[in-house]
């Protein structure tokens, strides 16, 4: 059980270590809602450049008055530099999704390979990998990501690297435990006694059994990465050229929008973050559930 660093220092909700991989059951309704929501957000993110041309969000070129409440011209009002909040929101989806997915891919690849290696290896290599995993599980991820993005050149890929490099350890630990338990199973013992090589065991038995677990974990990881990205942006660590939800909230906070009651650019970015994170979490929990259901209670 380890703390994955994220704002407020929370771990993934209820990701139990499943004892075995199961066949996929039907998609649970909550997961379906999550998938639908994600499809919508992805479509908006992809269409953003067409819907809202980038130059309309250039603070030096906007003509609209600042801090306008929602109107027909600006559905969600304007921000302190007169930019359209709805447009910013659409563009922000691009950063959130990109960073969330890319850093999770990095974390999942890293976590799965280190976890597999640590579960499979014996002797000093196992001990060394284990120590590294444990260390990264313990060090607060947000603090580490904060330090990384502070010292590297600012930019989207720095954020991706900072989040990816700090959030692989929990998965590595889970994968290691699973690998060890799978390799100790009589079914794998039987296959090894049949003459199977280590690669055969890994490829045909361990990886397929890990699949659903990693998938469930990846979905939860994307949600966490998105929260971490917005937190970093809120703290001032983001690509200054790409509008993001976290950066919008930073602006809202710095210009005193919250205390002034300008709800139209405090509420929407936060709601967008919650919706997307919730969607990924629901999909992840759906996977996790179908994984436990598929086990038939074993």
């Amino acid at each position: 059980m380890g703390g994955e660093g994220r704002p407020g220092g929370r771990t993934r909700p209820g990701l139990r270590t499943a004892s075995s991989a199961g066949r996929r059951a039907g998609v649970p309704p909550n997961a379906a809602i999550g998938l639908g929501l994600l499809a919508c957000v992805t479509a908006i993110a992809l269409a953003a450049p067409a819907l809202v041309p980038a130059e309309t969000l250039d603070p030096t070129r906007v003509t609209a008055p600042v801090n306008q409440p929602p109107s027909w011209a600006h559905w969600l009002g304007t921000d302190p530099s007169g930019r359209d909040v709805a447009g910013l929101l659409a563009w922000g989806a691009r950063v959130s999704l990109l960073v969330g997915v890319a850093s999770s891919v990095l974390a999942v690849v890293l976590g799965t390979s280190v976890g597999l290696a640590a579960g499979h290896a014996r002797g000093w290599l196992e001990a060394a990998l284990l120590r590294v995993i444990d260390f990264f599980v313990v060090v607060p991820g947000l603090v580490l990501a904060l330090a990384l993005s502070a010292v590297l050149q600012p930019g989207v890929w720095t954020i991706v690297a900072a989040i990816g490099l700090t959030s692989w350890s929990t998965l590595a630990r889970v994968v290691r435990a699973q690998t060890m338990s799978i390799e100790a199973r009589p079914s794998v013992e039987r296959v090894r006694a049949l003459g199977a090589s280590g690669w055969h065991v890994l490829g045909r038995h361990v990886l397929p059994a890990l699949g659903p677990l990693v998938l469930a974990h990846a979905n939860l990881a994307v949600g966490m990465a998105i929260i971490m990205e917005s937190t970093l942006a809120f703290l001032g660590l983001s690509d200054p050229l790409a509008p993001s939800w976290g950066a919008m909230l930073r602006e809202a906070s710095e210009t005193g929008a919250a205390t002034a009651g300008f709800w139209w650019f405090v509420l929407p970015p936060g709601l967008a973050i919650v919706a997307v994170v919730l969607a990924f979490t629901l999909v992840g929990r759906g996977f996790e559930r179908s994984l436990t259901v598929g086990l038939g209670g074993r």
Partner: peptide, 10 residues
């Protein structure tokens, strides 16, 4: 799923 800083702002 709620970012802490946003809840703070709310």
């Amino acid at each position: 799923s709620v970012p802490a800083f946003w809840l703070g702002l709310l």
